[in-house]
């Protein structure tokens, strides 16, 4: 099975604080790590390879420093590393990231399965995985908590909900995003670390991709981050227990007062 795992290098948010004056992340001196949810995707890919054979390629879009995340993925059992990197890609939002990644993955030859973490802990959007499947025009299942079986041309997986799960057949080639319930990632191995040190990182830049400049980077991004802030905790609400008609009138009056309607 040819497996691609998309990973992202993120600041270790357990150590990041938000600057209360500027409302921006204070990233200085904070260690970069593989997005924790992506570790589950790497582990699942390596397990699928161990059970069914094949090759695991890790792909990340990011600056050259993101190469260290790729090496770490190799120490965890991935076989090949692909860095999608170019100044032109900088500042991409989720749609442009998926667009660029899709173009990069198309250059990698046969791909049977793409694995992503359910979301990145810095942006928390959970959009890139599904959007990537859409760009590649392949089916996807999000929030997979278990791979039940792998057969020719499809696999059966469990998609997690808050209460319970759903059993879904995913045709191959396909994409899934995984939750942390799916496995327990292994620690790196010594041989893996040595392989990682020597591993060649295959870099894909703008010139290698069949893409339109208008859809790249910050300028190509249809969305903008306007502000990052810690949401205020919800205040306790008011609770009324009266005649429904009276309550409706009271609610409307209240909403008018607050100029909501």
């Amino acid at each position: 099975m040819q497996i691609v795992v998309c990973i992202k290098q993120v600041p270790d948010t357990t150590k990041v604080k938000i600057n209360p004056e500027t409302n921006t992340l204070m990233r200085e001196g904070v260690e970069s790590i593989i997005n924790p949810f992506d570790l589950y995707a790497i582990e699942e890919a390596v397990r699928l390879k161990e059970a069914h054979g094949g090759v695991v390629k890790v792909v990340t879009m990011g600056p050259p420093q993101a190469g260290s995340a790729l090496r770490e993925a190799i120490a965890l059992g991935a076989d090949e590393a692909v860095l999608v990197s170019d100044r032109a890609f900088a500042g991409a939002d989720t749609w442009v990231t998926a667009y660029t990644l899709a173009a990069a993955i198309r250059t990698l030859g046969q791909v049977d399965l793409i694995l992503c973490g359910k979301q990145a802990i810095d942006g928390d959007t959970a959009q890139v995985g599904p959007s990537l499947a859409d760009q590649l025009n392949i089916p996807f299942v999000a929030f997979v908590r278990k791979v039940r079986e792998v057969a020719d041309g499809s696999m059966v997986v469990e998609r997690m909900f808050e209460e319970g799960y759903e059993v879904v057949r995913l045709p191959i080639p396909g994409l899934m995003t995984v939750v942390k319930e799916i496995n327990e990632p292994r620690l790196p191995s010594l041989k893996g670390k040595m392989r990682a040190k020597k591993a060649e990182i295959f870099t894909i830049d703008r010139s290698a991709l069949d893409v339109e400049d208008a859809f790249l980077g910050l300028d190509g991004s249809p969305t903008r981050v306007v502000k990052i802030f810690s949401p205020e905790l919800k205040k306790a609400g008011e609770k009324w227990e009266e005649d429904p008609g009276e309550m409706a009138a009271k609610l409307v009056a209240n909403l008018r007062d607050q100029k909501i309607i």
């Binding site: 292994r186 191995s189 010594l190």
Partner: peptide, 11 residues
Amino acid sequence: NVCAQSDLFAV
């Protein structure tokens, strides 16, 4: 098993 997987027995 974890030691094995991390190659500690290979040392």
